[in-house]
Design a protein around this nucleic acid. Structure first.
Lengths: 156, 156
DNA sequence: TATTGTTATACTCTATAACTATA
DNA sequence: TATAGTTATAGAGTATAACAATA
């Protein structure tokens, strides 16, 4: 039997002692995140939307006219990082930069009709993906997980 | 008051509606991972060790003579990716590649004395970091979090 | 045929520092 | 002075595809 080159759980690698990492939240966080990211990538392969891009689309959709800086702050990334993200979405005709009339330094972001349609289509796909990721968890456990994740590193 | 440019919890951005992302495990996973990674980076700034490098050192320390491929599988990354990681640690004199006598394709990895000393020093630092990250959680909650993380994406 | 290590290449996500135009 | 957007640059971290040596 050919060994799975990448084994999400790592259970097939019983020959290697990983007990030193077993208790580490950071380690399991990385493994879980990699697995979820990979599934998201596959789920959205046809739409060519990354998790980060989805967050941006979803937040613009829910906050029409949002500025790039506010969006970056809300997602916890630098505003300089946001530039390229918006560039990409704008080039694809999903997002519009509209010069603000009240503050000419700032751009008001909106979804184009195409962007709105795509974002609406993405919603159920993300739900499916999420359901797949949380397959082994019941609703209570999923809620607990989200709650615990929100509290991890909160006081750093 | 200048706003914190990057706000781990995002609580300071109440002007932005993030409810669309609130229920998503993937979103909270990414936020938590970013916060933990950042704290790890700061904690290990003096030692210049990344989370990935720590995992490699810890696993070699616990599995002397491990091959690069087995190590990559155990950590869930490609063996081609592992090459540069080991290159870096070997250049720094922390890890040794020893040609296997039984299988000449394969390298047996060992910690050098320096590597062993550093890895031993890193242990308590990682514990401190972990404690800081789980500050808001009691022991039970931390155990639950680890358990839930192990089950996320397991059946993907 | 399959596996180990390797190289070449590319992509995503992210940050910092410095610039410009506004405020 | 401070903020919004931008550019240039850099560095993790990762993958795929191909190759030689070996099993």
């Amino acid at each position: 039997m050919a060994k799975n080159p990448i084994d999400p759980t790592g259970d097939a690698c019983s020959e290697v002692d990983r007990s030193v990492l077993e208790g580490l939240v950071g380690y399991h966080l990385r493994r879980a995140q990699a697995a979820v990211f990979e599934d998201f990538r596959k789920t959205m392969a046809a739409e060519k939307i990354t998790p980060g891009q989805f967050g941006v689309l979803a937040l613009i959709g829910a906050n029409d006219g949002l500025s790039q800086s506010a969006l970056a702050r809300a997602l916890g990334i630098e505003r300089s990082t946001m530039v390229a993200v918006i560039d990409g979405l704008e080039t694809r005709g999903l997002v519009d930069r509209r010069a603000s009339e009240t503050d000419r330094r700032s751009n008001e972001l909106t979804l184009t009709p195409t962007g709105r349609t795509l974002t609406a289509k993405l919603g159920p796909m993300v739900e499916d993906h999420e359901a797949r990721m949380a397959e082994g968890l019941d609703a209570d456990e999923k809620a607990i997980l989200v709650d615990l994740l929100k509290r991890v590193g909160a006081g750093a």
